[in-house]
Design a protein around this nucleic acid. Structure first.
Length: 507
RNA sequence: GGCGCGUUGGUCAAUCGGUUAAGACGCCUCCCUUUCACGGAGGAAUGACGGGUUCGAUUCCCGUACGUGCUACCA
C-alpha cells in the first residue's frame, strides 16, 4: 500500500453545479486515499470546450473546500504530475493515439457527421442499433479502407479526422472491480470509440488511460455509468503496453431519486423541494439559479456524513462519523452495489444532530449570513445564547430565525385565539398585577421571574396551568419555544412587561 | 433492441448457510416537559418471483420479473 494514489476525475457538467453523486464520488476517493495513507489527486476534465461552463471549475473547488475535501495537489496549478487540466495536456495525447495507429490498434477516420448518420440509418435493424464497429467500419472512409497514399494525402491536406480504437471482433474481457468483483464483457458489443477528436482533444477514454498512467494512479473510483466503457479502457491499457500499471477500479452505485426510480437529477430537487447541489450555482449562460445544501442551512460535516452513509456502511451501529472517523473506518469492500434513494428527511436529521453538538458560538457565526436584514446589529454573544435555547429544534441553520425571532423582537403575530379560548376576567387582573410586579422587581433571572410568577399565582388563587400558556403566547406569539421563564429572562424585564401589557390591552 | 449492473421494511441498511432477520430516518403510542422540540421507552413494517444445491437458504447456482446504466467527435 505504499505510494498509493487515488485519483478522482469529474467533468464540470454541462449545466455546471456539483451534485450529490459527484460529491460522493470525490468523498469516497478521498476517504480511501486517506485511509491507506495515499495521495488524493484531482483532475479537471475540460476536453469538451463547447460544453465547458465558465466558472464551473472555481465553483467545484469551493464546494470541495466547504466539504473539507482537499486534494494534495492543486488541480489548477502545475505540480509533480501536472498540469491537471486536460485542456493543458492536449499535446500529450496525440502521440499515444498515433502510437496505437502505428501498432494497428487504432485508425484514422475521415467520416463526416452526415456520413455517420447515414451509416447508422442504413445498417440499423429492428434488433440491432448500428455502431461504428467491425461490421460497419469496412464501409466507411478510414485508414482501414482507404489506400495508404490516399490516407497520407488526406492527412497532409489537413482533412478533419478522428482516431478510433479498433475493437477486436470477439474477445472476452474480464476485470475485477473492487466493489462488484469480476465483470465480463464481449468486445463485439463495444463500438470503435473515438480516442482523439477532430479538434485534437482526447475523448474521456483516451485521456483517462493516459492520465492515469502518467499520474501513476493506482486506484480509481467513478460512477457506475462508466462500467460499460470499462472494456475500452482495459484494452487501451493493454495496447499501450501498460497493463501492469493499470489502476484498480471501483464503480460506485448511483444515487437515485426519492420517488420512483432513476438517477437523481437537479430537476428532482426543484420538483420535490430539496437541494441537489453542494452549493448555490448560477448558470452563467442561462442565469438559472440552483440552491445548494450550504445555502439551505446545512453544516458541511453533516452533509458529508449523510453522503458517506448513502451507499456505504461501517457495519457498526454508529451513524455519526467525523471526517477522521470516516477515514478510519472506510473500506471499499463495504460500499454497496445497488443504488440508494436519497432521503431529504434523513439528511435533515443528520444536520440536526450536528447542530446539536456544535458549539453555540460557532453556530452563531455560521447563522449570520441567514440573518441579513433581520437584525439591526449582529450581537454574536447574544445570538449564541439564543442559539443555545433553540438549536435542538433546528434541522437547518435557516430555521434559527423562525425559531428565535421572538428573542430579538416582539412577535410579529400573536396567537390571540388560543389565549381567548379560556380567558377569564381574573386572568386580566392577574397579568396586570404581574406586569406591575415585574416593573418593581429588583432582580430578573429565570429563577426570580418564575418565583415572582409562582407567588402571584398562589396569592390569586388561580391554577398555574391556566396562566402559563397565555404567558407563553404573550412572550413568544405561539405555542412553541423553550422554557418560558428562560425567555423572559433573555428578553429582559421591561420587554417582558411590555409584551404582557400589549396583549392584554388588545384583548 | 443489444449489452452491463443491481434487487432485505416507505427510505438508508446489518447479516458473509443455522438469528426471535440488527440499527437508523420517517410514522404511531407512552414517559419527560404546565408549550414545541430534544431525550427516553415501546409499536407497526422487510428477504421480488420460480426452480435448483443443501440436513438447512435472505445468504450459493440458474431462470423470470422489475429497476437502472450505457449503446455520441458528452463526460
Amino acid at each position: 500500500m505504499e505510494n498509493r494514489k487515488v485519483r478522482v476525475r469529474f467533468a464540470p457538467s454541462p449545466t455546471g453545479g456539483l451534485h450529490l453523486g459527484g460529491v460522493r464520488t470525490v468523498l469516497y476517493n478521498y476517504l480511501f486515499a486517506r485511509h491507506h495513507g495515499g495521495d488524493f489527486v484531482l483532475r479537471i476534465e475540460d476536453t469538451d470546450q463547447s460544453r465547458f461552463v465558465p466558472g464551473a471549475e472555481e465553483y467545484i473547488m469551493q464546494c470541495l473546500d466547504w466539504c473539507g475535501l482537499h486534494p494534495d495537489e492543486s488541480p489548477v496549478k502545475p505540480g509533480a504530475y501536472g498540469p491537471y487540466r486536460q485542456s493543458e495536456r492536449k499535446a500529450l495525447y496525440r502521440q499515444y493515439a498515433e502510437q496505437l495507429v502505428a501498432q494497428g490498434n487504432a485508425y484514422y477516420a475521415f467520416d463526416t457527421p452526415q456520413e455517420l448518420e447515414q451509416m447508422r440509418e442504413k445498417h440499423k435493424t429492428e434488433h440491432h442499433q448500428a455502431q461504428y464497429d467491425s461490421r460497419t467500419r469496412g464501409f466507411m472512409r478510414n485508414s482501414l479502407t482507404l489506400e495508404a497514399t490516399e490516407v497520407t494525402s488526406l492527412l497532409q491536406a489537413g482533412t478533419p479526422h478522428v482516431i478510433r480504437i479498433k475493437m477486436p471482433e470477439h474477445e472476452s474481457l474480464v476485470f475485477t472491480d473492487m466493489i462488484r468483483g469480476e465483470v465480463h464483457f464481449d468486445t463485439s458489443v463495444v463500438d470503435d470509440k473515438v480516442l482523439l477528436k477532430a479538434d485534437g482533444m482526447p475523448t474521456y477514454h483516451l485521456a483517462v488511460v493516459v492520465d492515469d498512467y502518467l499520474m501513476e494512479i493506482t486506484h480509481a473510483f467513478r460512477g457506475e455509468e462508466w462500467l460499460p466503457s470499462a472494456p475500452v479502457h482495459l484494452l487501451l491499457w493493454q495496447y499501450l503496453g501498460w497493463s501492469g500499471k493499470m489502476p484498480q477500479w471501483a464503480h460506485l452505485p448511483l444515487i437515485l431519486k426519492p420517488d420512483g426510480n432513476g438517477k437523481l437529477s437537479k430537476r428532482d430537487g426543484d420538483r420535490l423541494g430539496f437541494p441537489v447541489f453542494a452549493m448555490d450555482w448560477t448558470d452563467p449562460r442561462t442565469q438559472e439559479q440552483t440552491v445548494g445544501f450550504k445555502e439551505r442551512g446545512f453544516l458541511p460535516e453533516a452533509f458529508v456524513n449523510m453522503l458517506a452513509m448513502l451507499g456505504w456502511n461501517s457495519g457498526m451501529e454508529q451513524e455519526l462519523f467525523s471526517m477522521d472517523e470516516l477515514i478510519q473506518h472506510f473500506s471499499i469492500g463495504r460500499v454497496h452495489k445497488g443504488g440508494a434513494k436519497f432521503d431529504y428527511e434523513k439528511a435533515k436529521w443528520f444536520n440536526n444532530q450536528y447542530i446539536q453538538k456544535t458549539d453555540n458560538d460557532v453556530l452563531a457565526g455560521l447563522v449570520l449570513p441567514f440573518l441579513e436584514g433581520k437584525l439591526e446589529e449582529a450581537d454574536l454573544p447574544r445570538i449564541a445564547a439564543a442559539m443555545g435555547m433553540v438549536k435542538d429544534r433546528m434541522h437547518l441553520l435557516t430555521e434559527f430565525w423562525p425559531q428565535a425571532a421572538y428573542l430579538f423582537e416582539a412577535p410579529a403575530e400573536t396567537d390571540i385565539a388560543s389565549v381567548q379560548a379560556k380567558w377569564k376576567p381574573e386572568h386580566k387582573v392577574f397579568f396586570e398585577a404581574f406586569a406591575s410586579r415585574i416593573d418593581a422587581a429588583s432582580e430578573w433571572t429565570e429563577e426570580s421571574a418564575e418565583q415572582l410568577f409562582n407567588e402571584l399565582v398562589t396569592a390569586s388563587g388561580l391554577k398555574k396551568g391556566e396562566v402559563m400558556l397565555p404567558l407563553r403566547i404573550m412572550l413568544v406569539g405561539g405555542k412553541f419555544g423553550p422554557a418560558v421563564f428562560a425567555i423572559a429572562a433573555f428578553i429582559g424585564k421591561e420587554e417582558t412587561a411590555a409584551r404582557i401589557r400589549s396583549v392584554i390591552s388588545g384583548l
